[in-house]
Simulated assay, not measured.
Amino acid sequence: MNTLSTILIVVGLFFLGGVYSFAKQGLPKGVVVLLSIAAGMALTAGVLRLGVWS
């Protein structure tokens, strides 16, 4: 496992925790959506950097 892919996956999971926390606190939906997009992008980049498909 590459170091950068590990960091991206950990950051994505951290952002997902923030999405859950912010949604539970009742923050504006725009903030929650923006954070969930960032989480999805970080997780996708981390998984794609693993290179297990090629």
Rank of each mutant, 00 (worst) to 15 (best):
M1P: 15
M1T: 10
N2H: 12
N2R: 05
N2I: 02
N2M: 01
N2Y: 04
T3Q: 06
S5V: 00
S5N: 07
T6I: 12
T6L: 10
L8G: 00
I9M: 09
I9A: 04
I9V: 14
I9P: 04
V10T: 08
V10F: 08
V10S: 02
V10W: 02
V11S: 00
V11M: 09
V11Y: 00
V11C: 03
G12L: 05
G12I: 03
L13W: 02
F14M: 13
F14H: 04
F15G: 04
F15W: 04
L16Q: 11
G17D: 01
G17H: 02
G17A: 04
G18F: 12
Y20Q: 03
Y20E: 09
S21G: 11
S21C: 05
A23C: 00
A23D: 07
A23S: 09
K24Q: 03
K24N: 07
Q25K: 10
Q25G: 05
Q25E: 14
G26T: 06
L27W: 09
P28Q: 04
P28E: 09
K29F: 12
G30Q: 11
G30V: 12
G30H: 11
V33T: 08
L34A: 14
L34R: 05
L35S: 06
L35G: 11
S36D: 03
A38M: 13
A38V: 06
A39P: 11
A39Q: 10
A39M: 07
A42R: 01
A42D: 02
L43H: 12
L43A: 04
A45P: 07
A45N: 14
G46F: 08
G46V: 14
V47L: 15
R49K: 11
G51I: 05
G51W: 05
V52C: 02
W53Y: 11
W53Q: 13
W53D: 08
S54M: 15
S54F: 14
S54H: 15
